[in-house]
C-alpha cells in the first residue's frame, strides 16, 4: 500500500521535479555548449575534450545550477498537499482506507528524495571541484561553506513551501509565498547589516562572513520549523 502511495506522490510532484532537474543542468549545459563552440576556432582539438580548467568551471556551473533550484524547490514541496487540495483529490484520498500518518509519511519521503537529488549532485560537484588543481573555490573549506549556505537556503525555502502547502490550496500560491517570505527576510537581514553600527564597523570580509552565516542559520531554522510545523498542521487539521 505504501509503495502505491509513493508512486502516486512521485507522479504528483514529477512536473516540478523535472523542471528542477532541467534548471539544475542549464548552467552546466550552457557551459559545455560554449566551451565546445570555442573549440571550433581551435585547430585539431576535439570538440568535447575539455581541459582541467574547463572541468573545474563546469563543476562550479553545476553548483550554480543548485542555486537556480532554489526557485523551483519549494514547488516540489508545495505540490504534495496544495495540489491535492486544488484538484479536490484530497477528498478522494481521504475517503480511502489509509491512515493520515501513512499519507503524510509517503509525501514526506517523496519530497525528501526529490529535494536530496540536487543537493547530492551539488555536494559531489563541490567536493570534486575543491579537490582539483584548478579549484574555483579557493580550498575545500570554502567549497563546503558555499555548499552549506546553498543547502541551508534551498532547504529553508523548501521548508516554507511545505508549510504553505499544508495551509493553502494552490501549489503556485504556496511556492510564491515561500519565495516572497524568504526573499523579504533575507533582504531585511542584509539591511540590518548595512544599518547596525557594530556590524558596519566590521571589516568587509568579516561582515560578509557574518552575513553569510546569519543567513545560513536563519534558513536552516526555516527548514526545521517549516517541515515540522507543516507536518503537524497536516496531521491535525480537520480536512486533508
Amino acid at each position: 500500500m505504501f509503495l502505491t502511495l509513493l508512486r502516486k506522490d512521485w507522479r504528483l510532484a514529477k512536473p516540478a521535479f523535472l523542471l528542477m532537474v532541467v534548471l539544475f543542468f542549464v548552467p552546466a549545459s550552457v557551459g559545455v555548449a560554449v566551451t565546445a563552440y570555442a573549440r571550433i576556432f581551435e585547430d585539431k582539438v576535439p570538440l568535447l575534450r575539455f581541459s582541467n580548467d574547463d572541468f573545474a568551471d563546469l563543476l562550479s556551473l553545476l553548483v550554480g545550477g543548485g542555486w537556480l533550484c532554489i526557485f523551483v524547490g519549494p514547488a516540489v514541496a508545495a505540490c504534495q498537499f496544495a495540489r491535492e487540495r486544488r484538484e479536490r483529490t484530497s477528498e478522494f484520498l481521504g475517503a480511502l482506507p489509509v491512515s493520515r500518518g501513512r499519507i503524510i509519511r509517503s509525501k514526506a519521503l517523496t519530497t525528501a528524495c526529490m529535494l536530496a537529488f540536487p543537493l547530492l549532485l551539488c555536494f559531489l560537484a563541490s567536493i570534486s571541484a575543491s579537490t582539483s588543481n584548478h579549484n574555483p573555490f579557493d580550498g575545500r573549506t570554502q567549497a563546503l561553506s558555499m555548499f552549506g549556505l546553498l543547502s541551508a537556503i534551498f532547504l529553508g525555502v523548501c521548508g516554507l513551501g511545505w508549510l504553505f502547502s499544508c495551509i493553502l490550496s494552490s501549489e503556485i500560491l504556496a511556492t510564491t509565498a515561500a519565495l516572497l517570505v524568504s526573499a523579504t527576510l533575507a533582504f531585511k537581514i542584509y539591511l540590518v547589516f548595512q544599518v547596525v553600527p557594530s556590524l558596519k564597523a566590521l571589516s568587509p570580509m568579516q561582515r560578509e562572513l557574518t552575513l553569510t552565516w546569519t543567513i545560513a542559520v536563519l534558513f536552516a531554522c526555516f527548514a526545521i520549523v517549516g517541515f515540522i510545523a507543516g507536518t503537524i498542521i497536516a496531521s491535525v487539521r480537520r480536512t486533508l
Binding site: M1, L3, T4, K8, T89, E91, F92, L96, P97
Partner: peptide, 18 residues
C-alpha cells in the same frame, strides 16, 4: 475526484493497491 492526470487504468491500479 480521482486524479485527473491519471488514466482510468492507473486509477484502478492505485485503488487496487489501497
Amino acid at each position: 475526484t480521482a486524479y485527473p492526470w491519471m488514466r482510468v487504468q492507473e486509477v484502478i491500479q492505485f485503488c487496487e493497491g489501497v
